[in-house]
Design a protein around this nucleic acid. Sequence first.
DNA 1: TCCCATTGATTGTTAGACAATAATGTCCTA
DNA 2: TAGGACATTATTGTCTAACAATCAATGGGA
Lengths: 233, 233
Amino acid sequence: MYLQKADLPEIDDDTVSSSDRVVDAIIRGIWSARYVPGQKLIEAGLTDAVGVSRGPVREALKRLAAEGVITLTRHRGAYIRAYGRLDADEMLEVLEVLTCLMARLAAEAANRDQNAKLMRDAYEILDGQGNRHGEDALFIGQRHHFYDTLLAIAGNIQLARLLPTTQIQLLRLQIMPYLTAQDRQAQLDEYAAITKAVLAGEPKTAESAMRRHMRRSRERFARAPDEAFAALV
Amino acid sequence: MYLQKADLPEIDDDTVSSSDRVVDAIIRGIWSARYVPGQKLIEAGLTDAVGVSRGPVREALKRLAAEGVITLTRHRGAYIRAYGRLDADEMLEVLEVLTCLMARLAAEAANRDQNAKLMRDAYEILDGQGNRHGEDALFIGQRHHFYDTLLAIAGNIQLARLLPTTQIQLLRLQIMPYLTAQDRQAQLDEYAAITKAVLAGEPKTAESAMRRHMRRSRERFARAPDEAFAALV
DNA sequence: TCCCATTGATTGTTAGACAATAATGTCCTA
DNA sequence: TAGGACATTATTGTCTAACAATCAATGGGA
């Protein structure tokens, strides 16, 4: 059984700064669905939870805000980022080109080293879990692993830096409750197509499979009800 | 005469936090070429320069590190980011897909409102300045305005958030001194092609003009000598 | 010349304090 | 009872001062 990001870390207390530990705690909270979009983060609560003083906490919040994971408003505090309809659609438009690049690069490198095996493993875990309903948190963790594997195979470090994986996670979380069983099955089929093309070492096919996946995702977002999105924005 | 980013701000002291002012000071330092890639930033120096305490300075550094503008190493401090050869190439590979999206969206929206005029103005300023040698800082400021205009016309806020314009600036700065007169002229021609396609409202053409520009840029980077890049990385 | 210890500079973190602002609750009035 | 003005509280933004941990540089000593 694959370990969820939420369970993993156990970071070296010595080689990691206090603010890193705060960042980690928040990210882990998101992955474990303990934090949901729109939720407020209070400095005092974080100092207690992580056991550090306000300095590192505030540094961590600034960093997460820069990464787009939380929104900071002066004198009003930090909130887990919640996307409006337009935000989400624009985000997916940008993510499309980035993930297509990822798929293309991954397909180009799929035959090197252990890459094929990594890819197969990541997909099988995702597929095995995807059919069971209810375990949203687990499914999301495994999808993340699938993406991480693609990124690792693609081998472009700067792409890994720029691709906002946690923001993707937050986006997905927002419409997760409104997906039908068909939607879920369609997603799995799309992942299967991407996997197949990457394993076949066909960059063009992988790219268009990914593009189709992202386009379909946009349609699924468009069909989601208003409750799924933040007001105003 | 177009105002450079370096000269602009004059931010409201009341509506902006102290750490924002620090961020601004550093960004402005980069745009005005007072800071160069690899240069060290010392907390004490920033507290003096901006007139705030260490707290906001450290928050600003964390934020800039998250944006990829500086590199932070534990106990070793903050440095203006310097790209190695591989870093730069990978970065350009990612930037290619993002800027191509930008060009495509801009071309789709070029006929709305004042967009055509904005685009023409931005290009003319760039073209008028580009031929004079020597004024690197000025040229770079105007290229930035060109990109900003494209982004504004494209109208995708999330793309504007994700496109790392200051990082692009730092990249360009590194090879600027090693470009030949032909290189510069070629760049200007490429910008002209992009502008023309955007103004014509031809998304496909704009995208491929941008792609050609980024590919050529990668070649120019590849030809730059080792001194242009950070060692090791 | 090379290695190593001491010194100085810089960073990482804490604690406590206070002003500024936003959120909340209370009371009074219409 | 609803609404608005006010006071109260919670939270954020910032500063100062302090200290440990670590790195960089200096200067011997072998």
